[in-house]
Design a protein around this nucleic acid. Structure first.
Length: 473
RNA sequence: GGCGGCAUAGCCAAGUGGCUAAGGCAGCGGUCUGCAAAACCGUUUGACACCGGUUCGAAUCCGGUUGCCGCCUCCA
């Protein structure tokens, strides 16, 4: 493989090694991510899944690729049907609400919107068509008005997860009595609707009976509809490798004879211990975290700062560290903006060059975020020294802002937008400066409180008073 | 039982054969300062789970041991 072309290597679950990344078409990359079930608020595991996909996507864009990113919305499955019923709503109303909230949560985490979010409920015709073709090819069979995939006919079954079907325990989590499959390992393509679903109108008439699709065929159908036979990268979390992605592969490759995705990128999970305030049966949601006072940017930093193939243990204290780090980055940006004038320093160019080299070198290597962030912190350290001892020339400051802006287009952990000032703020700061000069501390402290109400925090330094917006997101 | 992952300082975490083993947090010392808070600078704890092997040389490769975790065809 020619590594020079993109420079990027990715750990590919299919080959179990870091492979040089090469898109099918020059300059464009197609990514498919298994999407959420819109029956509840998103949890931290889901946040990580899309956060990792976002980091990958943004880095590819940073490298100059045009990325098409598809995330399906699972709005037709057991959970959504049951959830809608429990809420006393029809499935559409119920899922639309959670779909909307999913997008809000993604926005809060600064996860870029996907190119499109196909609803699986709108691709049932394709799923029925795929099932028909699989039956014709002999990869599927019908039993009692459900249609199953016959894995014994697909000789590559297990190549992604490397499971050895002969050595696996069958029936540990499957109630074998409930199925009419020839082999308990076969999986469902279309399942007959239950009486209850029929009454609620949740069924699709087919030649085999009134059915609804299974999860596996939903993903496979949406992916192929979006991208055709083969796309570049499929992302998901580790828990999807088996059986879900294995089944996606079985369906699509039985049909086309071609690989569904060239690269399979799986992130590790977020592990949670018990939280006293959260009911045991449900995982912590992003909402829970926001309600504790953490911002989207802080959560994003926490999610993204750990290498994607390493399991994360959730704890509030880790979020506190993230909060602190994000705050430190903000203060660095503020300091950069308010830094006193200094000479042009040749060393700056070298520091910027080193930062870029290290950042790209680290991210190219399977998104080695730890090294990338270390490079950023080293850079900040060096610039801080320069600001403390010499000050910065405007031209140098602009160069620094430019390089940070480039890195931030990938990381999205800094807030580089210029805070807009106002006459009111300027006036209060002037008044306070006058009061301080007269050593009227009571007046100065009062004005500081007034500014705080306007969400402005002032900092007194030997070179005068600086201020910053108190960040909310 | 099968497949896979992990083990690096007080905590988090890079590093996969060879310079003084990144970076972050906490700690300690200092600067700034009316106060406050923050920030910044400097810096400590002399860290590679255990046993054996390969090698001139191992955190890194191989074998074994221990411990922890995930998945194993309900649903997603």
């Amino acid at each position: 493989m020619d590594r020079k072309k993109t420079g990027i290597i990715l750990f590919n679950t299919m080959t179990r090694q870091k492979d040089a990344f090469m898109p099918i078409k020059d300059n464009t990359v197609s990514i498919y991510s298994c999407g959420p079930t819109v029956s509840r608020f998103i949890g931290l595991a889901g946040c990580r899944r899309y956060g990792v996909a976002d980091l990958l996507r943004r880095y590819l864009e940073f490298k100059g690729f045009t990325v098409t990113h598809i995330i399906n919305i699972t709005d037709l499955d057991d959970r959504t049907i049951q959830g809608a019923e429990a809420a006393g709503e029809d499935v559409k109303t119920f899922t639309e609400k959670y779909y909307r909230e999913f997008l809000n949560d993604m926005d809060a985490l600064r996860i870029k919107r996907a190119t499109s979010y196909p609803l699986v409920s709108q691709h049932v015709e394709e799923m029925i068509d795929i099932t028909q073709r699989l039956l014709e090819k002999g990869f599927a069979y019908e039993r009692l008005r459900s249609v199953y995939f016959d894995i014994s006919r697909f000789q590559h079954y297990g190549k992604l997860s490397r499971v050895d079907l002969d050595k696996m325990r069958v029936g540990k989590t499957v109630d074998l009595d409930n199925y009419d499959k020839d082999n308990p390992r076969d999986f469902t393509l279309l399942k007959r609707s239950t009486l209850h679903e029929l009454k609620r109108g949740i069924f699709f008439p087919t030649k085999w009976g009134n059915v609804r699709p299974s999860w596996h065929i939903e993903c496979a159908a949406v992916a192929m509809k979006s991208f055709g036979e083969t796309f570049d990268i499929q992302t998901g979390s580790m828990d999807l490798i088996f059986p879900h992605h294995e089944n996606d592969i079985a369906i699509s490759e039985a049909l086309t004879g071609k690989p569904l995705a060239n690269y399979w990128v799986h992130n590790e999970l977020v592990k949670e211990k018990n939280h006293p305030e959260i009911p045991q049966e449900r995982a912590l949601t992003l909402r829970d975290v926001f309600n504790r006072g953490y911002t989207g940017r802080e959560v994003r930093f926490w999610l993204v700062s750990m290498h994607y193939r390493k399991a994360m243990d959730f704890s509030w204290s880790k979020l506190d560290v993230a909060k602190k780090t994000v705050s430190r980055l903000d203060r660095f940006v503020d300091k950069l903006r308010t830094c006193q004038k200094g000479p042009v320093i040749g060393e700056i160019d070298q520091l910027i060059y080193d930062l870029k080299q290290k950042f790209v070198g680290a991210m190219d290597d399977d998104l080695n975020i730890s090294q990338a962030l270390a490079a950023l912190f080293d850079f900040i350290h060096s610039i801080n020294r320069i600001m403390d001892f010499q000050g910065l020339d405007l031209s140098d400051r602009t160069k620094i802002e430019d390089v940070l802006s480039g890195l931030n287009s990938v990381l999205m952990i800094m807030d580089l937008t210029e805070p807009e000032s106002s006459y009111q703020i300027e006036e209060l700061i002037r008044e306070r400066a006058a009061a301080r000069q007269k050593k009227d501390w009571a007046r100065a402290d009062h004005l500081r409180d007034e500014l705080k109400k306007l969400r402005v925090e002032v900092t007194d330094t030997k070179d005068g008073t600086t201020w910053r917006r108190i960040k909310e997101t």
